[in-house]
């Protein structure tokens, strides 16, 4: 490499780094601003021009957010719905994913088409009939009804993602176990399941996050205040407090916190899972 092109490439590296950092700063700013607003006293929030560095820190907004009458009930509802959705969709989804990854059977292609196609149906479009169905079944304003609905909307993705992970486990391992005297179920339990663990974790976190974030269906299906989820709490919090942005940002921080923690734990796996399972087929 001659000196001038080396200089040019060093120069290019510098520009690229600068651009990358600028992009990161711009993308991260809304989150930074949320945290800053949540932790600073009201005088500093309503300061013009805005102050971009932390001054005094306070927990008063968090105290106010947590003290809203339904906060803990809403946390409980969100957690129950999340866990219920994840457990059931993993139980059912793993079976179907195993069938897709390991067997060829008539109708497999149709099943794949349904699994993929269903993901395209906008949730908002089905609210009305789902609401009518659940009200016929007496499951409106019940967490079970919400779990059932979320389950169906998560299942296709769960199946597809897990299928990708199972395909990645060499089938010879299972065959060897069966040669050594395991039943099919035993081979699945002793060979596939341990290897599938990262996939299960990634998938469950993904489903949990989806359930945690969903708003419309929960809003329509759950009418009593103490059964509503945190997403609904956040919205009602916003309207009932007007422009109390300190409280709102504290509420937003609390809502985002569990999701952010989980995401940080599994982000690599979700990303590779999406890349290998969903994207690469």
């Amino acid at each position: 490499m001659n000196p001038s092109s080396a200089r040019r490439s060093r120069h290019g590296r510098f520009t690229a780094n600068a651009l990358g950092l600028l992009f990161s700063a711009v993308m991260a700013f809304p989150i930074y601003w949320m945290l800053l607003t949540a932790f600073r006293p009201a005088e500093e929030i309503h300061h013009s021009p805005p102050q971009f560095w932390p001054g005094h820190l306070t927990l008063e907004h968090f105290r106010r957010a947590v003290d809203t009458p339904t906060f803990w009930a809403n946390v409980r509802a969100s957690v129950l719905i999340g866990i219920g959705t994840v457990v059931v969709s993993l139980l059912i989804g793993t079976l179907a994913a195993f069938a897709l990854a390991r067997f060829s059977f008539a109708g497999r292609k149709a099943f794949v088409l349904v699994i993929l196609g269903v993901q395209m149906i906008p949730l908002a479009g089905l609210i009305i009939p789902v609401y009518l169905l659940l009200s016929d079944a007496g499951l409106t304003d019940s967490l079970l009804g919400v779990v059932l609905t979320y389950l169906v909307f998560m299942l296709p993705f769960t199946v597809w993602l897990l299928r990708g992970f199972i395909v990645g486990i060499p089938v010879e391992l299972e065959e060897a176990a069966m040669v050594d005297g395991c039943t099919r179920l035993g081979a699945f339990r002793r060979v596939v399941l341990p290897l599938l663990a990262p996939g299960l974790v990634a998938t469950s976190i993904y489903a949990l996050v989806q359930a945690w974030n969903e708003y419309v269906l929960a809003y329509v299906l759950l009418s009593s205040n103490d059964k509503q989820t945190l997403s609904i709490w956040l919205v009602s919090f916003q309207t009932s407090f007007g422009t109390d942005y300190g409280g709102l940002m504290a509420g937003a921080t609390l809502t985002a916190l569990p999701v952010a923690v989980f995401f940080a734990i599994v982000q690599r796996r979700v990303a590779t899972g999406l890349a290998t399972g969903a994207v690469k087929g």
Binding site: I31, V209, Y215, V259, Q267
Partner: peptide
């Protein structure tokens, strides 16, 4: 950013 719930 990916982890931020839509409502947040």
């Amino acid at each position: 950013v990916w982890a931020m719930p839509i409502m947040v």
